[in-house]
Amino acid sequence: MRKIIFLILFVLLIISAFIALRFGSVGIEWREFWHSFTHPSEQGTAHSIIWLTRFPRVLAAVLVGAGLAAAGCALQGLLRNPLAEPYTLGISGGAALGAAVVTVFMPIHLGAWTTPVSAFFGAMVSVTLVYLIAGRRRFSVTGLILAGVILSFIFSSAVLLILTLASPLETNSILFWLIGSLSGDKVSIIKAIPFFIIPGIAILYLFGRDLDAIALGDEKAFHLGVEAIRVRQILFVVTSMVAGACIAAAGMVGFVGLIIPHAMRMMIGPGHKPLIIASSLAGAAFLVLADTVARTVLSRHGQELPVGVVTGIIGGMFFIILLLKQREKMSF
């Protein structure tokens, strides 16, 4: 049964990627499309659009979608909290501050790497602080959540401070980043983020049964041989790396890390090993499709939407439908 669902999700991902390569703001004839598919090294307009513009972006969407969904799934189990998502533990505030500082004060110049590197650096700073504060409270669930929420507040306020000092153009640029978007040059970034996201998801998968035990409470987990505090320490670092890489690549794309794990849990149950695989596949497919919508829906007017807007609206509505359908069997 689970294998069939994995297969369906995988096929769905392939179809999504295909749709994303096929459609964009510019229409491409089927003939041209197949030609550049079968002759991927031949230069030309269709080649440039499909392989140099759409393809890196689809790849980035796959990685970011999978990473966010897997990290969200792990954190929901780790914190036994249905509202946990990759940004719960303070990572977003730090990343936003990093991006804002670099946009306004320009302390470093790394070309295409400037914003990703500074966002990742900011994320790691805030994660380290959360780790240190939560460590004083023995990595209890409430300790982690409180530390994360409070640091998010502090960092977000610092971002707002910078926004008031920034020029309108810089403000606009930061806001766009805060909503989350996959636009821009992804050729460089997709060479870096797989090294964080793929091993990250693999580790989360390996800890799947530990997450199952932790879901029953720290004490019961201990009686099953799982030291919840240790696992939380390790997986906190892992999810932070994954989420940090995702934020670096796409800004703060919301809802994927919250909704996808929920939806998958309704479909295949709460066991974390299958859940992490299903969430990764579904998250990837969802973000690829959402980004395709973001690219195309207003393209006739020369406007691209930030993908965070699409994931928020489509994801939210999709989730409400699920919620209404499964009212009786809601696990939370």
Binding site: P82, D212, G217, L224
Partner: peptide, 25 residues
């Protein structure tokens, strides 16, 4: 093996999956 008095029941595991968790150690 320990049977605690209280248990976090946030996630709706099936009985079969739940019992199999006993194999974890």
């Amino acid at each position: 093996a320990v049977l605690p008095q209280t248990l976090a029941l946030g996630f709706d595991f099936t009985v079969a999956d739940f019992v199999r968790m006993g194999r974890l150690p």
